[in-house]
Design a protein around this nucleic acid. Structure first.
Length: 470
RNA sequence: GCGCCUCUAGCUCAAUGGCAGAGCAACGGACUCUUAAUCCGCAGGUUCUGGGUUCGAAUCCCAGGGGGCGCACCA
C-alpha cells in the first residue's frame, strides 16, 4: 500500500462539519443509507481487533470514522495508519451503538503520509518557539491557533465589505519607497540594482493614498503590509498590517463617527456582541466612547495643569521626575506627548478618543481650527493600546513644507526616525488636497482584541523569528 | 540593545550534586462499539553549545546560542 503512488486528486464531496450538521441528531445504532465522501487527517486511531475507530479532522471540524474488517476495504492497513496521515474516505453515515455519529468506511485511500508526529495527542504542543516556527504543526495541535487566523481573515473581509458599501475603493500603493514617509519609524533599506539606488520598504502608505485623493479618489483605502525596523515585542512585529483610509470633505470628528460605527458593526458580526472580553476584562463597545484631550489627560495624571504653552522648564522637570530622558531639541509638544505615554496611555482602558495632539509631534495633521499649537488629531485607545490614529489632514503646502523642514532638522540632529522633505508630495499638495480626514488602524492589534490573545504572534501566521540553525 | 526567567527523548514533563525517567507519539503484538480506548512488548538521549568547579554536574559557576517576559523604540 505505501509503495503505491499517492493519488493526484480525491473527489471530496462533503466536509466533516456538513455531515455533522446534516445528521447530528440521530439515535444510537442508526443507518442512514446516505453515502458521503470526506477527507482530512486521521488524528486519533483506536484499532480494536476487527473494528477500528478513528477521528478524521478537516478544515471544517471532525467526525469519527468507523471501520470493520467485514465492510472496509484494506481494513488492516487502515487500522495501522499513523496519526496525522491524510486519507480520503467513502462510506455511509451511521451512528455507532454508543451513538457516535460516524462515517462507516467503505473504501478509502491514503492521500499523504505524516512522517512526523503532531505532538502529544492530549497536550499537543505548547513551546512557543516550536508553535510559531512550525505553524503547520501548531494549526493541528492547537485549535485556537486556527481560530485566531480565521478571526483575522474574517476581520479583513468584513472591513473591505463595510468600506466598499460606503463607497471606498481600495488601491494598492507602492511598497518600495524612495523616501520612507508617512510615519516616524526606522525603515528597512534595500537596493534596486538597475536603478542603482536605495529603496525603503514602506513604513506607511499615507503619502501615496493622499496623492490619490489629490488625484480625485475621494474615498480611498488600503489594507497595507508595512515594515518598521524597530524592536519586537508581544505587540510589535517588523511587518504588520494597517488599514489606512481617506475620506474627502471630512474632518477628524467624522473619523471618530466612522471608526466607532465600523468597530461596533465588526464586533457584532464577528463575535455577536458589543462587549468583548479581553484577557479577563470587559471592553464595552456599546458604551459612550469618552473623548478627552491629550493635555487634559496629562494634567490630570501629573496633578498639574499643563499644555503646549506651559513653560518648557516646567515640563522638562515633570519629565525628569518620571525618568524620561529629555533631549535638548524637544519642545513642549514632544514633552507633553512623552508625559502622556509614560503616565496615561497604558492606564486607559477605553474605548477612549485621546484628542488634539501637539503640532510638533504631528507633522502630517492639520492645525487645530481653534487651539494654537495643536492639531486636529486623535488616537483611539482600547485596552491601553493605540488602535487608531487619525486626523484632519494637513492640506496647506506651505505649512506642510515647514513641518517637513522641522522634521528634517530633527533627522539631521540624529533622530533616524524623523521624516524627510518629500518634494513630490508637496507638489501634489500644491495641486490642491480638499479637506480630508485620514485614519490608520492596526489590524493585527484589532484581531488580538477580537481573538482575545495577548501576543501579536498569535494573529500572524508566520511571525518574524530569528532563522533556525540546522 | 539592556535586565530577569527558561532550554532534559518527536511532544508534554520528572529527576534540585550521587545509576537520566514517565506519559503520549513511533515501532511489534492482543482485542467486534471505542471516545486521550485498554493491555502486552520494544526502542528512543551530545540533558542547547563550549569551558570551569567537584571524587562525581541535567543540577553549581562563566561565556555563547534559541525562546519567553519586561525596559527602550514603536503601532
Amino acid at each position: 500500500m505505501t509503495n503505491s503512488p499517492f493519488p493526484y486528486t480525491f473527489d471530496r464531496r462533503d466536509t466533516c462539519a456538513s455531515v455533522v450538521s446534516r445528521f447530528g441528531a440521530l439515535g444510537p445504532g442508526s443507518s442512514t443509507g446516505v453515502a458521503v465522501s470526506v477527507a482530512g487527517r486521521v488524528m486519533l486511531m483506536r484499532p480494536q481487533g476487527k473494528l477500528a475507530f478513528a477521528r478524521l479532522v478537516d478544515a471544517s471540524g471532525s467526525i469519527q470514522l468507523f471501520a470493520s474488517q467485514a465492510d472496509t476495504g484494506n481494513f488492516e492497513e487502515l487500522s495501522k495508519l499513523s496519526l496525522g496521515d491524510w486519507v480520503g474516505v467513502d462510506g455511509e453515515v451511521i451512528t455507532t451503538k454508543k451513538g457516535e455519529l460516524s462515517v462507516k468506511v467503505d473504501t478509502w485511500v491514503l492521500l499523504a503520509q505524516a512522517r512526523r508526529g503532531f505532538g502529544d495527542k492530549w497536550k499537543g504542543i505548547s513551546d512557543p518557539d516550536l508553535r510559531y516556527r512550525q505553524r503547520y504543526v501548531d494549526l493541528w495541535a492547537n485549535p485556537s491557533s486556527r481560530e485566531s487566523l480565521l478571526m483575522r481573515a474574517a476581520t479583513i473581509s468584513f472591513i473591505r465589505n463595510w468600506l466598499e458599501k460606503r463607497g471606498f475603493i481600495e488601491i494598492d500603493t507602492p511598497v518600495l519607497h524612495p523616501i520612507a514617509g508617512g510615519a516616524t519609524a526606522r525603515p528597512f533599506v534595500t537596493t534596486h540594482n538597475t536603478l542603482d539606488m536605495d529603496l525603503y520598504l514602506r513604513i506607511a502608505p499615507e503619502l501615496y493614498l493622499k496623492r490619490l485623493v489629490v488625484g480625485g479618489f475621494d474615498r480611498v483605502y488600503e489594507i497595507a503590509r508595512v515594515f518598521r525596523n524597530e524592536g519586537m515585542s508581544p505587540r510589535h512585529n517588523p511587518e504588520f498590517t494597517m488599514l489606512e483610509l481617506y475620506q474627502a470633505y471630512s474632518d477628524y470628528n467624522d473619523a471618530m463617527v466612522l471608526i466607532k460605527e465600523l468597530l461596533m458593526d465588526l464586533a457584532k458580526e464577528l463575535t455577536g456582541d458589543l462587549v468583548l472580553t479581553y484577557q479577563g476584562n470587559l471592553i464595552d463597545l456599546g458604551s459612550t466612547w469618552e473623548k478627552r484631550s491629550l493635555s487634559e489627560l496629562v494634567s490630570e495624571a501629573i496633578g498639574l495643569e499643563v499644555s503646549v504653552s506651559t513653560d518648557r522648564e516646567v515640563l522638562v522637570e515633570q519629565c525628569k521626575a518620571r525618568d524620561i530622558q529629555v533631549k535638548d531639541d524637544w519642545g513642549q509638544g514632544k514633552l507633553i506627548l512623552e508625559l502622556y505615554e509614560k503616565t496615561c496611555e497604558a492606564t486607559l482602558w477605553g474605548p477612549i478618543f485621546v484628542t488634539d495632539f501637539p503640532r510638533e509631534v504631528s507633522p502630517l495633521a492639520r492645525a487645530h481650527r481653534s487651539q494654537p499649537g495643536l492639531t486636529e488629531r486623535f488616537e483611539l485607545i482600547i485596552a491601553g493600546r493605540e488602535l487608531v490614529n487619525a486626523f484632519s489632514e494637513l492640506c496647506d503646502p506651505d505649512d506642510q513644507r515647514s513641518r517637513f523642514e522641522s522634521q528634517a532638522a530633527i533627522k539631521a540632529s540624529g533622530d533616524d526616525e524623523a521624516m524627510e522633505v518629500d518634494e513630490d508630495y508637496l507638489r501634489a499638495l500644491e495641486y490642491g488636497l480638499p479637506p480630508t480626514m485620514g485614519l490608520g488602524m492596526g489590524i493585527d492589534r484589532l484581531v488580538m482584541l477580537l481573538a482575545d490573545v495577548s501576543t501579536i504572534k498569535e494573529v500572524i501566521a508566520f511571525p518574524t523569528l530569528r532563522p533556525e540553525v540546522y
